[in-house]
Amino acid sequence: MKVIDTEIEGLVILEPQVFGDDRGYFFESFSLKRFEEKVSKTVFVQDNESKSKYGVLRGLHYQLPPYTQAKLVRVVKGRVLDVAVDIRKGSPTFGKHVAVELSEENKLQFFLPKGFAHGFAVLSEEAVFQYKCDEYYAPDHEGAIRYDDPELGIDWKLPVEDIILSEKDKKHPRLQDAIWL
C-alpha cells in the first residue's frame, strides 16, 4: 500500500498494490496492521455501502462531538469525486478542501481523520461506494454544510442541472453558519 499525502495534513490517499493477470486481479483492500503502521491508529467499528446513480451528490456531512468520525472510503463500482473539507477549529487549513476521484479502475482509497466534512458526487452511470467509520452513526449529532457554498469553491465536476440532492442536503447551512468542531 502506497500512502499519498494531500495538501491538508492527515488527509491521505491510499493506493493498493494490485496483482493482475488474464484471470482478473487481487489486492488487499484493508490490513489493520499496515494501516496502523502507515496511516493512523484507528479502529473501525462500522462498514457502510451506498449505491447511487449519475448526478447524485451526497454531502457535505459530519458528526459532532462526542461522535466525530474518521472514515476510510472507496468505490467498488463506478466513479465518484470524493471531497473532504477541514472543519477543525483553529486549523490552518480550516475551510479548505481536497477532492479526489475514486473509481473501480484506480482502486484508490481516501482516509479522512476526525474533523472533516465529507461528500461525494457520482460521475459514472452508477456507483457503489463503501466506507469504514471509527464511530457509530449518531443521528442526533449530525452536522452538514451546503455542497455549493461559494466560500468552499468546490468544483463537483458535474453540470449544475445534473446534480441530484436529497431534500435534507438541499437545506444545509453555509460553512459560516454551520455548527462545527
Rank of each mutant, 00 (worst) to 15 (best):
T68E: 15
T68R: 12
Q69N: 10
A70E: 06
K71L: 07
K71A: 02
L72E: 04
V73F: 01
R74M: 12
R74H: 11
R74C: 13
V75D: 12
V75W: 07
V75Q: 08
V76Y: 03
V76L: 00
K77W: 12
K77A: 15
G78K: 02
R79I: 11
V80K: 11
V80C: 10
V80L: 06
L81F: 15
L81K: 10
D82E: 03
V83K: 00
V83G: 06
A84T: 09
A84V: 13
V85M: 08
V85A: 11
I87L: 03
I87A: 02
I87E: 02
I87S: 02
I87N: 01
I87P: 01
R88K: 08
R88S: 00
R88T: 01
R88V: 05
R88C: 00
R88N: 02
G90E: 08
G90C: 03
S91C: 06
S91L: 12
S91Y: 05
S91H: 06
S91W: 10
P92G: 13
T93C: 12
T93M: 14
F94P: 00
F94N: 01
F94C: 01
F94Q: 05
G95M: 09
G95I: 07
G95T: 10
G95S: 04
G95E: 11
K96I: 07
K96H: 11
H97Y: 07
H97C: 01
H97K: 02
V98E: 00
A99L: 01
A99E: 10
A99D: 10
V100R: 06
V100N: 10
V100L: 02
V100C: 14
E101V: 14
E101G: 05
E101S: 04
L102A: 12
L102S: 11
S103T: 07
